[in-house]
Every structure is written in structure tokens, then in C-alpha cells.
Write a protein that binds this DNA or RNA. Structure first.
Lengths: 336, 336
DNA sequence: CTGTTAGCGCCTTCAA
DNA sequence: TTGAAGGCGCTAACAG
């Protein structure tokens, strides 16, 4: 692989001249400039970012630590980050943490060795193991969706409480009185907030939340399926159900279909992410769309602004979702 | 951020000693070793991979160029790559190419500047724009699933033809005679191969493929929905349908439900990826599971072996899928 | 067992 | 308008 020195020799100039024509950092005579450019082209010379970075103390690379890129929501977020970063010349180093503190710490260590300019952190797991690593560095960090108590980084998240509220209010307005909630694990903050929104909507409508109608489970299709199954087997089953995320909602749809319960005829279902596939489920799912892609973009943009030296107090942003009504929700059957 | 020189001064030794205790690359007296380790710890020193890489001419980073990390299949592949790479100390730089040659070329250029040790390329778009960039470098490359005519890289892909064959044969064995195919864009190699497998299964069963039963469309849920709609509106609609991928199959399920066609009662549906959500669609989807995660792992492992100097002829591997029968396929209704 | 030294490829004063 | 030279942080001969 050609080096700048080789280019310089071949073009009969000094390396500093080559450097300057590449970076347009000082005037170079037209003739010399052409010659240098020509030999760069002929040799297929491409600057070495390691050498450059060593000098300038930057890598134009940002790390992204997320629980699992396979989660459709995170995939969308990741895409937003990559797009925004690419537009301003940054690359993304992807790290799947799987909620495993050990693994996250190992990843972070690697990222610091490689001197990433900044980090987007979707901190699923505890941050305790990360603290010692971060102690001596000053890597700009933006937190995505999951806040961390004792840390003063910029934060952009979703308004989960509003999501639960909006979805549930929709069901209330349709006329439902017995509305269940298919919730994720109790330990998960996002799910807990959505559940809180669900409760607020009920209370506001003068309905007393029935504890039997809230079921916690794995935040995936299997969890939603199991929860819905349990709900439908109740002596007094709900006429509507809010699932804290779309995967659970889809699982609930599956359970209803298998139990011979018509959706939305006998059971209305609303989800909470509006995944792409939600628009084509059977029936099409009513959900609350989350601006994940936009959030990814904003995360990257904010981080890069910080990297470039913008200071000021930490930002704290909560992005709003938007209810999308489709065919899985309707007024309750007369009897209910 | 502390440097090795600072550690050396503080510990009262030379930088080479520090280097050697870090890399265990020559004997160091126990006492000195302890002292160095202690000050490294105290100062929170973390080696600079740029400097190290500049010296050793490597980055322990591999680039991954894929069309779109949001595609569930690619997300799974990506996860496999990241996992396998992480296990041996490599990081992943993610680049979404979106089938855009310009963008892919820009990404590749950036990756070369950063001197990635190797590249996993899922070459959606043309490789023509990449060739000039690669001309002067010798970056190990492994191709994933999409072959490139005039290139001699290792290749690991899926056996799409077999996928189409297996899914279709399953429908044939169920007793179906009029079997449609919901295919992706004609230009897409993977889809074309699956379609070929579909045809082979029909011919082998002595059935004459009816051109009216093959519909090309966008390879997503919307495309599958539209195709199924058209199929169901036919004077002589099919009693079964093979969708080249799960997203299309899910779209087809949606279209059938909306048309009041029972699945599998009046229409059997089989897909081709076995996405996670396929296990919980309504009804649960019969599909052909693809070993995407394993493929990602193998891709990374092979690439890293090449990076580490293993030579030998180019590998060419085709991984097999496995039929998963669920509730969307059944024998045809007596009338058919 | 330990230190000195010469680069890796690039940028950037400082001189000319 | 151009070149020479030093140094970014680290590794690896080469000497002791």
C-alpha cells in the first residue's frame, strides 16, 4: 500500500507538499499540484487514517453500544445513527452488549483503545462496570433511551409514559372498560413507564385498574403470546389489550387467533412501536409509532457536535410517539 | 489520557519495559513488573491502538458492508459476524450501503483509509465502482451470499434454489396442484434462485408451471400483500403459495385475511427465511429457516483466518436451510 | 533483565 | 511557493 513518502518521491516533491495538496492547507503551484494529484491517482494512494489520527488525536469513528442489533427497534436506531454519522464522515463501530456487563465492559475497553471520538450508549445493563474504564478518559457520551442515575451525559429518549397513555386512551375512547396490559419484565424501565401511562389513562377515564389484567412477561412475541393466552383464559377476560411493544402485540394476535377470538371483533389490540411489519400483521396492528430513526440521527448529530467542542449544559430530550390506528382495534361488542 | 511514556516515567522505567510487561513479550523482573502494573492501574492507562496499529500495520477491525442493517435477515447475519469477531478481539465497522454504488464506494474508501484488516461484503449493488478502490490494496474480502462474477474471494452463501425447492415440495406433498409463487424483483439473484427451486419442484411433480401464478414485486410485506391480492383475484386462484421470503409471506397472510380467505383452510402459505416473528404470525408461518447467524459467524471466522495469513484456494460454501412446518400450510380443501 | 534508538505515516511549525 | 525536521504513541531490534 502506497505511502505519502512514495508519492512524494515519485512526484519529485517533498511529503509536506503532498500533504498540503491533499488537505488544501496551503497554496501549491498549479503545475506541482497537478503532478502530485496525477501520481496519487496512478499509485492508488489512500491516506492512512491511523497515522493521521495519531497526529490529530482523532479517529472520526464513534462507538455504538447497544443490547442487540437484532431487535427491530434498535436496528432502526442504529440505522439512524449510521446515516447521520456517515453524512459527516464518521464511521460506526458496532458493539452488541446483550445486557451483559462483562461483555459491555470488554467492548468499551476495546473502543477506548481504538480511541473512538465518542460513544452512543444504550445502556441495557448496569453501568457500574463501565465507570472505572471511563474514569480516566473524557470520551463524549450520549445516552439513548436508558438513563443512568449518576451520570451527566446528554440524553435522548422516548416518552414511554405518553406511549402507554395514548394507546390506552385510544382503547378507552373506543368504549372499552376492561382493558388489559401485556407488560414486559418489571425491571425494564421503558416497559414500566408504558405501564404507568396505561394506568394513568385508565384512572383518567374513571376506571379502576384490575391487577389481574396486568401480566408481566418476556418482551418478545413469545411473551406476548403467553400473556394473552392467560388473559383470554380469565373468567372475565378483557375486551381490549395494550401490549407494551409490538412484538408482544403480535404474539397476542397469534394467541387470539389460536383461541378463536376475533380481533378486533371480540378483542382489540394495540401495540407500542409500530414496527414495519405491524402494518401487515393479521389484522394490521394499531400501534404507537416511535421515531427511532430520527432518534438515532439526533443522537449522532448531538454527539458529533460535542466531539467538535460544543459545550453547554447536558441536553435531555424525550421524543414523542404517534398513534397509528389500524384494524386491530374497534369498539367493543355490544355485550361487553 | 495517559501515554506509555508517562507511565514509564512514573514507574521509573523505560517505555520498552512498559511495553514488554503489557505485551508479555520478554522477561521482566517480578518487582518491576508489579510496579509497572500498579502505575498503569493508578493512571488508568489504556494503550493507544492507533499508535500500535501504525507500527504493526493492523487494526483488529473488520468492515462490514451490507445493504441495510434493518433487514431482519441482515441483522441476524451482522450479529453473527459481530459475535465471532468479538470473541477473537476484532471490532466491526458497520456500513449500510442501501444498494447505492456511490455510497458503497464512499464507505469503502473510508474503510480503506482506516486500514481495516478485512471486509465482509454483502454486495447488493454493482461492484464496478468498488474495483478501482480495491485495485491497489490487498484487503482480504469475504463475499456473503451475493457472488460477484470477476472476483476471486472466499464466498459463503445460502442455497436459495434448495430453499424454493423444499418449500414448494412441501406444498406439493400436501396435495396442492395450483401453487403460486410470490417472487421478489426479477433482478435479485437470491429471489431468482428461489423461484428456480419452485419451478423444479413443480416439474418434478409433473405439474406445469402456470406463468400467471408467478408474480414479481417488492421483496417486502407490501410487495407480498399486493402480489397475494392479485393472485386471490384470479379466476382460478391458487390453493397454495410460496413466498420467496418471510416478509412477503407475512404480507400475503395479511392480504388473505383481508380477503376473507382462510389460511390454511382455503390457502396454504409458505415463506423462506423463518424470521423470529414467523413463529408468531397469524397463523404461525411455515417457512424454510436460514442459518443466517451461523453464516455470519463463519464469514467472520474465515475472514480472520485469511487476515492471519491462511492461504489456499478460495472457499465456496452454500449453507442449507431447513423446512419448518407450522400452521399456515395444510392439505387443500376437497374441492380443489 | 533493562534501556536506547529508530522508525510506522502523517501533519505542521520553522526556514528558505 | 517549497522543503527539512520533529513528534504523535508505540514496538522491536540492538546494546549493555
Amino acid at each position: 500500500m502506497a505511502t505519502m513518502k512514495q508519492v512524494a518521491e515519485r512526484a519529485g516533491v517533498s511529503t509536506s507538499t503532498v500533504s498540503h495538496v491533499i488537505n488544501r492547507t496551503r497554496a501549491v503551484s498549479g503545475e506541482v499540484r497537478e503532478r502530485v494529484l496525477a501520481t496519487i491517482d496512478a499509485m492508488g494512494y489512500i491516506p492512512n487514517a491511523m497515522a493521521r489520527g495519531l497526529k490529530n488525536d482523532k479517529t472520526t469513528t464513534i462507538g455504538v453500544s447497544i443490547p442487540d442489533n437484532t431487535n427491530p427497534c434498535l436496528a432502526e436506531l442504529l440505522r439512524g445513527i449510521e446515516d447521520a454519522a456517515f453524512e459527516v464522515g464518521y464511521n460506526i463501530m458496532l458493539c452488541n452488549g446483550y445486557e451483559d456487563p462483562q461483555r459491555q465492559a470488554a467492548h468499551l475497553r476495546g473502543l477506548i483503545e481504538k480511541r473512538i471520538d465518542g460513544l452512543v450508549l444504550v445502556a441495557g445493563a448496569a453501568r457500574d462496570e463501565l465507570a472505572p474504564l471511563l474514569a480516566h478518559q473524557r470520551v463524549p457520551i450520549v445516552l439513548a433511551d436508558h438513563e443512568v442515575p449518576d451520570v451527566d451525559s446528554d440524553f435522548i429518549g422516548l416518552d414511554h409514559e405518553a406511549t402507554g397513555y395514548v394507546a390506552t386512551r385510544h382503547l378507552v375512547e373506543l368504549g372499552h372498560r376492561r382493558i388489559a396490559c401485556v407488560a414486559g419484565p418489571e425491571a425494564e424501565p421503558a416497559g414500566r413507564e408504558r405501564l404507568a401511562g396505561y394506568r394513568r389513562a385508565l384512572e383518567q377515564a374513571g376506571l379502576v385498574p384490575d391487577p389481574a389484567l396486568v401480566i408481566h412477561g418476556a418482551p418478545d412475541a413469545a411473551g406476548g403470546h403467553a400473556a394473552a393466552q392467560a388473559l383470554l383464559a380469565l373468567a372475565a377476560p378483557p375486551s381490549a389489550l395494550f401490549a407494551c411493544n409490538d412484538l408482544m402485540a403480535l404474539g397476542a394476535l397469534c394467541a387470539a387467533q389460536e383461541a378463536g377470538i376475533a380481533v378486533p371483533g371480540q378483542l382489540s389490540v394495540a401495540g407500542g412501536d409500530d414496527l414495519g411489519i405491524a402494518a401487515f400483521s393479521s389484522p394490521r396492528l394499531t400501534s404507537v409509532a416511535q421515531p427511532l430513526y430520527a432518534m438515532g440521527r439526533q443522537l449522532a448529530e448531538l454527539l458529533i457536535r460535542r466531539i467538535r467542542g460544543e459545550d453547554g449544559p447536558c441536553r435531555r430530550l424525550r421524543l414523542q410517539g404517534a398513534l397509528v390506528v389500524r384494524h386491530s382495534s374497534a369498539p367493543p361488542a355490544p355485550g361487553h
